[in-house]
Design a protein around this nucleic acid. Structure first.
Length: 203
DNA sequence: GTGCGGATGAACT
DNA sequence: GTTCATCCGCACT
């Protein structure tokens, strides 16, 4: 039941955090409705030096300013005009590192997730993919810059972890524009888990 | 002020 | 495999 500490998020090694977040529990409490699940897929975005990052080359705008804050905040933004994507801000203040949460295994509040997704029975795509899981968890721009030690959205360590051989590293999804950084193996997921998002050809 | 295109998902053929 | 929904961030005039 331990929320991840302030110092956990301050880690300068965003890839290490992305790997370590696998097996942690993400929760939201929206208008008193609690939903949560196990993180099974992440991607690391390495701030100013990463061409796939919104903060590449130190770009600082009203959208990206959240990423420059202290690690331990939520970075939520709208993608393709339709989908909210949820990231964990990591690293010390001024370093815009972030970890995109791409896959979640539902654990708590399943009926609320189904309702938010307009589904009647559980299918793996309920939380497979960043846009899908944000919708299932009720995450939208209201949670941008939210403190992950607060009571709206948080991450817990419940002692679950995965061995190295259960974790796959492969290129990130949807970042073809990032040129030579597009093939960096900074996407991590739990091998064989059904709540990992689709492009799985690297298993 | 305008124009382009995206860290996607779902519904098609 | 292809299409398209749908809107704002961002670069440039």
């Amino acid at each position: 039941m331990a929320k991840l500490s302030y110092s956990y998020y301050q880690n300068i090694d965003v890839n290490a955090v992305a790997v370590d977040l696998l097996g942690k529990y993400l929760f939201t409490s929206i208008d008193g409705t609690v939903t949560g699940g196990i993180i099974v897929e992440t991607e690391a975005y390495k701030g100013a030096e990463d061409k796939a990052s919104h903060a590449y080359a130190g770009r600082f705008t009203s959208r990206t300013q959240t990423m420059y804050e202290d690690g331990g905040l939520a970075y939520v933004y709208l993608c393709y005009g339709i989908h909210h994507l949820f990231n964990v801000v990591t690293g010390p203040k001024g370093i815009p590192h972030a970890v995109l949460i791409r896959g979640l295994e539902p654990v708590e509040g399943l009926e609320h997730m189904l309702s938010r997704r307009g589904m009647s029975i559980l299918k793996s795509n309920i939380t497979a993919g960043p846009g899908a899981l944000a919708k299932a968890m009720g995450i939208d721009k209201n949670l941008n810059s939210a403190d992950l030690q607060g009571d709206l959205i948080w991450v817990e360590d419940r002692g679950l972890g995965f061995k190295n051989e259960q974790i796959v590293a492969c290129p990130r999804v949807g970042v073809a524009y990032a040129e030579d950084h597009a093939l960096l193996p900074w996407r991590y997921f739990v091998k064989g888990n059904r709540f990992v998002s689709k492009p799985n050809k690297y298993i």
